[in-house]
Amino acid sequence: MASLATHFSAFVLFFPIGIRRLLSSSSMYLHNPSQFRSKLWYFSDPKWKNLDLYALLVALPIASFSELFLFFSFSGHPTYRFSFFQQSLTLLAFWVLVILIFVRDYVGGTLLLNESFVFLFGGVVFLLEYSVIGKGVSGIAGAVYGLLSGLTLMCAFSCIYLSVMPCAFFAEFFLSSGMVFKGTWLLQVGFSLYTDAFGLNGCQNVSPFLALPQNEDVDVHCDLVEDSLRGAALMQFLFSVHAILVLVLAVGVFGVLASNRNLRYGEARGPLLAEIESASLRMRGVLPELEME
């Protein structure tokens, strides 16, 4: 994780997906709350508009193999070397999750490959990411990644809850908002810890390709203890600012969609909604027959 490029890539992964899920799920819920059911992916119609899903299918394995290449070629500090391998496995797990979503919604689900299983697998993938975030890193970076791990846990538990209760909009809301929050926070961490222009006063990035002592597992080195404490306090303050902004954004999006039907997004006006409504009508046709019997 020790570079601006990797943090920006993670921002590009999480932020757009979180925004799209927030818009689509809120639109569907507002159309008919009693019929809401969370989806693995909110597809567009026609299918070629789902360029983000196709991009993930291509980009994630490339990123995973790149991390694996660094693992085999890197000869520096063992903590950093092993982190490349962990990150490679995590990216590969997210790639498998995208493949499952693709197969489930494009080819059709089976008894085993249903939405509940894929949501559960998504929760496991987020837990895997949680287990490798900031692994073995101390100092300011360790505290910052500790905050990030809390967001990852929120996404994991939301996925697990949706695997049991797919009609729970609050879990979908937490999942979408958590992904948006993860994206913005990763971008903030990349600028604050791994750039000179936006870096913390008195602290500097420690390159993982430099030879470090065995007992120094840090991404950011501060000259004085006061600089380290001030930097940690500033990052906690920025985390609170991000939390407020994401909350205002999520609630604001929901409020705007609730007040204006024409702005509702994606599948709230597409073929999936028609499919849900037809299924509801079929159920209404079945229920009277069961009551007569």
Rank of each mutant, 00 (worst) to 15 (best):
residue 153 L to P: 06
residue 175 L to A: 03
residue 184 T to P: 01
residue 177 S to R: 14
residue 170 F to A: 10
residue 174 F to V: 09
residue 155 C to T: 10
residue 128 L to P: 02
residue 157 F to T: 15
residue 175 L to W: 11
residue 136 G to S: 12
residue 129 E to T: 11
residue 140 I to G: 03
residue 156 A to K: 02
residue 172 E to Q: 15
residue 131 S to Q: 09
residue 180 V to E: 02
residue 147 L to C: 09
residue 161 Y to F: 13
residue 133 I to A: 09
residue 129 E to V: 07
residue 138 S to A: 10
residue 123 G to A: 06
residue 161 Y to L: 12
residue 170 F to S: 13
residue 125 V to T: 13
residue 174 F to I: 12
residue 138 S to T: 14
residue 134 G to V: 05
residue 156 A to M: 06
residue 130 Y to G: 10
residue 182 K to P: 02
residue 172 E to S: 15
residue 164 V to S: 11
residue 130 Y to V: 08
residue 131 S to N: 09
residue 151 L to P: 04
residue 124 V to N: 02
residue 155 C to Q: 11
residue 147 L to S: 12
residue 182 K to Y: 00
residue 134 G to P: 00
residue 159 C to Q: 11
residue 165 M to C: 07
residue 139 G to R: 03
residue 177 S to Q: 12
residue 139 G to C: 03
residue 157 F to R: 04
residue 178 G to K: 03
residue 174 F to W: 10
residue 140 I to D: 01
residue 182 K to H: 07
residue 160 I to F: 14
residue 145 Y to R: 07
residue 152 T to D: 01
residue 158 S to Y: 07
residue 155 C to Y: 01
residue 169 F to R: 01
residue 180 V to R: 05
residue 179 M to K: 13
residue 124 V to D: 03
residue 163 S to Q: 05
residue 131 S to T: 15
residue 143 A to C: 06
residue 181 F to A: 10
residue 148 L to I: 09
residue 138 S to F: 09
residue 174 F to C: 14
residue 175 L to C: 05
residue 161 Y to M: 10
residue 163 S to T: 04
residue 183 G to V: 10
residue 133 I to Y: 06
residue 177 S to W: 11
residue 129 E to C: 05
residue 126 F to E: 08
residue 158 S to T: 08
residue 127 L to S: 14
residue 124 V to Q: 02
residue 161 Y to V: 12
residue 147 L to Q: 14
residue 178 G to M: 05
residue 173 F to N: 01
residue 174 F to Y: 10
residue 128 L to G: 14
residue 166 P to N: 06
residue 173 F to E: 06
residue 167 C to D: 14
residue 147 L to E: 04
residue 150 G to D: 09
residue 136 G to P: 10
residue 136 G to A: 08
residue 134 G to R: 00
residue 160 I to Q: 04
residue 144 V to T: 10
residue 144 V to P: 04
residue 155 C to A: 15
residue 159 C to P: 00
residue 179 M to T: 13
residue 130 Y to D: 09
residue 138 S to V: 08
residue 179 M to R: 14
residue 128 L to S: 13
residue 136 G to F: 05
residue 164 V to F: 14
residue 185 W to G: 01
residue 175 L to K: 15
residue 160 I to D: 07
residue 135 K to Y: 15
residue 179 M to V: 08
residue 137 V to R: 07
residue 172 E to W: 04
residue 160 I to S: 08
residue 130 Y to L: 14
residue 143 A to H: 12
residue 173 F to S: 03
residue 180 V to F: 06
residue 183 G to A: 02
residue 155 C to I: 06
residue 166 P to I: 11
residue 123 G to V: 11
residue 183 G to T: 10
residue 159 C to N: 13
residue 128 L to K: 05
residue 127 L to D: 05
residue 138 S to Y: 09
residue 156 A to C: 04
residue 159 C to M: 12
residue 150 G to W: 15
residue 146 G to I: 00
residue 142 G to C: 01
residue 125 V to P: 04
residue 149 S to D: 11
residue 129 E to R: 09
residue 161 Y to H: 14
residue 135 K to L: 13
residue 164 V to C: 06
residue 125 V to L: 04
residue 180 V to L: 08
residue 139 G to Q: 04
residue 174 F to G: 02
residue 167 C to F: 13
residue 139 G to V: 07
residue 139 G to N: 07
residue 147 L to G: 11
residue 138 S to K: 13
residue 132 V to K: 11
residue 126 F to V: 03
residue 169 F to G: 02
residue 150 G to C: 12
residue 128 L to Y: 09
residue 161 Y to W: 14
residue 139 G to Y: 08
residue 127 L to R: 04
residue 140 I to E: 02
residue 168 A to S: 15
